[in-house]
Lab assay of single mutants.
Amino acid sequence: TFVEFNGKKVEYPTPEAAEKAAKKLAKKLNLKVTKKNGNYKLE
């Protein structure tokens, strides 16, 4: 499962880990999380 932000793509071993990381990053970077095709994107 990938988390995409600032043009970077980071892969996580589980969807749970990706979701957790996405939410944490979104909060830190003041972005919102969108889920697309099972992957997460911060914008």
Rank of each mutant, 00 (worst) to 15 (best):
N37K: 06
A21F: 08
P13A: 12
L25E: 01
V3F: 04
K20Q: 12
K32G: 05
E16G: 09
F5N: 01
Y12H: 03
E16H: 10
N30Q: 10
N37I: 03
T14Q: 03
E4W: 10
K8I: 13
F5T: 02
A26N: 01
E43Q: 09
A22S: 04
E4D: 05
V10S: 07
N39S: 12
N6V: 05
A26E: 02
N37Q: 08
E16A: 11
E16F: 08
A18Q: 01
K23S: 09
A26S: 06
N37L: 07
L29G: 04
K32M: 10
N30F: 08
G38H: 05
P15C: 09
K9V: 12
G7Q: 05
N6S: 07
A26H: 01
L42F: 05
Y12E: 00
T34H: 08
K8D: 05
G38S: 05
E11H: 15
E19H: 12
N6M: 14
E19G: 07
T14A: 03
A18L: 02
N30E: 05
E11Q: 13
K36L: 15
E11L: 15
K24D: 12
K28T: 10
E4A: 05
K32V: 14
K28C: 14
N6I: 06
L31N: 00
K9Y: 11
K24A: 14
F5P: 00
N6Y: 13
F5W: 13
V3G: 00
V33C: 12
K36T: 14
K9W: 11
K24R: 14
K9R: 15
K28D: 08
K9H: 08
E43A: 08
Y12R: 00
V10E: 06
P15M: 11
L42T: 02
K23I: 13
K23F: 15
K36C: 14
K41R: 11
E19N: 07
K36P: 05
P15I: 09
A17R: 07
A18K: 00
K28R: 13
K27V: 08
A22E: 00
L29R: 05
K41C: 14
E19T: 05
K24Y: 15
K23R: 14
V33Y: 07
K28N: 07
F2C: 09
Y12F: 12
T34C: 08
A18S: 02
A22P: 01
V33Q: 02
K20M: 12
E43H: 09
V10A: 07
P15F: 05
F5V: 06
V10R: 13
K41F: 15
E43Y: 14
L29C: 14
L29S: 03
T14C: 07
L31A: 05
K35E: 10
K35F: 15
Y40G: 01
E43F: 12
K24S: 13
T34E: 08
Y40P: 01
K27Y: 10
K36Y: 14
T1M: 07
T34M: 09
N39G: 15
A26K: 02
K28A: 13
Y12G: 00
E19W: 15
A17L: 13
E11K: 14
A26F: 01
E19D: 07
P15V: 10
L31Q: 04
V10F: 14
A21C: 09
K32F: 08
L42A: 02
P13T: 09
L25K: 03
V33M: 10
P13M: 08
A18E: 01
N37C: 14
A21P: 00
L29K: 05
Y12Q: 00
K9M: 12
K20W: 11
E16T: 07
F2D: 01
G7E: 05
K8L: 11
K27Q: 11
L31I: 04
F2A: 05
G7L: 04
F2L: 07
A26C: 04
K36M: 14
N30P: 02
K32P: 03
K28V: 11
T34I: 13
L29P: 00
K20H: 11
K28W: 13
E19S: 08
L25F: 07
N39K: 05
K32T: 12
A26L: 02
T14W: 03
T1I: 13
K20C: 14
Y40V: 04
E16R: 11
K36V: 15
V10M: 12
K20F: 12
F5D: 00
K23Y: 15
K36R: 12
E4G: 02
V33A: 04
L25V: 05
L42R: 01
T1P: 08
E16L: 10
L29Q: 03
E43T: 11
K41E: 10
E4P: 00
P13Q: 09
A26I: 03
N37H: 08
P15S: 09
K35A: 07
A18V: 00
N6Q: 10
F2E: 03
K8Y: 13
P13L: 09
L29I: 03
E43D: 08
L42S: 02
K35C: 14
F2Y: 13
V3A: 00
A17Y: 06
N6L: 14
L42M: 04
K41D: 04
L42V: 13
K35P: 04
L31H: 02
L25H: 02
L25T: 03
E19I: 08
Y40L: 07
T1H: 13
P15R: 12
T14M: 03
T34L: 10
A21Q: 05
E11A: 12
E16P: 03
K9A: 09
Y12T: 00
E4K: 03
L25W: 10
K24F: 15
L25M: 10
N6R: 13
L31R: 03
K9D: 03
A17T: 07
E16I: 09
E16C: 12
N37A: 08
K32S: 09
K23P: 00
K41Q: 13
K36N: 13
T1Q: 05
F2S: 07
Y40M: 04
E11R: 15
K28Q: 11
E4H: 06
T1Y: 15
K32L: 10
A26Y: 01
L42P: 02
L29D: 02
N39E: 08
A21R: 04
A18M: 01
E11G: 10
E4V: 08
V3Q: 00
G38N: 08
V3W: 02
L25S: 01
Y40N: 01
V10W: 15
